[in-house]
Design a protein around this nucleic acid. Structure first.
Lengths: 148, 148
DNA sequence: TATTGTTATACTCTATAACTATA
DNA sequence: TATAGTTATAGAGTATAACAATA
């Protein structure tokens, strides 16, 4: 119990597992969830760009998009200017899944942080955010299919 | 960047990977490190007991102890009263590895928490500790080979 | 020549089940 | 009958390398 790093690793694992368990109810993996969120925020992207945003390897992205498409949450459409690439679009069903998923995520977070007061949760969030920002100095460009 | 649970999972992963990288310099995996620490704190244990303390599956414990023994950090000795079981003893070399490892761990933690002030680190530690305690309601009995 | 998506493959990590020798 | 350690095996999860189509 001595090291903060150990506590961090332990709780991180707990949080990830608990979150994955909730998403499973929606038929989503953590990777699918991450990709869906990025598509919702950024608009249609190529698989390569999606991989850069989510940290998913291009070869792993194939099966991730396969799964999302099989569930009707995204569509592979033709890229307007590059016939090698796909433009991955989120569907209406995808947006609905996101909405339900966000509710589940809120519930999961509520359970996870139950031992802390509102003020303590805010403290924890800010401390973690500063650590995450410090460890992520790489600027990822989005490579959107349609410019915003 | 919205959810605290997400930040927790992200930083936990970073912390675990960074720690594993440091321990690799000593030829140790995270599992070997965990087992070595428990043996140092609790005295000689059976592989089963060691598995319960560290959360390592009995079958995985075999190779973990194999690796530790090959590195000269522990010894499988005869259990005084149960000829099925081994008594795993930490060696002098094992204690030296622990000592060096603890230095590395301090350095790793220093790097990880560099963005935070001393007071903020203490805050973070206490918040995480309360979360960890809340998610771990199971009392593990040690099953020591020699009573203390 | 380089890049996109794809496939096949290998590698890591871990858990499950069966086996042996003891209890 | 149950338990400690072991082995073999299988299953995730992920990364690597090679390939076809296209840039």
């Amino acid at each position: 119990m001595k090291h903060t790093g150990f506590l961090l690793a332990r709780m991180g694992h707990v949080a990830a597992k608990q979150f994955a368990g909730r998403m499973e109810e929606l038929g989503l993996t953590t990777r699918m969830w991450g990709a869906l969120n990025v598509l919702d925020a950024e608009g249609a992207l190529t698989q390569q760009a999606l991989g850069k945003c989510t940290g998913i390897d291009p070869s792993s992205m194939v099966s991730t998009v396969d799964d999302l498409e099989a569930a009707g949450l995204v569509e592979r459409r033709r890229h307007p200017s590059d016939r090698r690439a796909h433009a991955i679009h989120i569907t209406e069903q995808g947006r609905e899944a996101l909405s339900r998923g966000r509710q589940l995520a809120r519930g999961a977070q509520e359970d996870l942080l139950a031992p802390l007061s509102a003020q303590e949760r805010k403290q924890l969030h800010e401390l973690l955010l500063r650590l995450v920002i410090a460890t992520k100095p790489k600027g990822v460009t989005t490579d959107q299919v349609h410019k915003k």
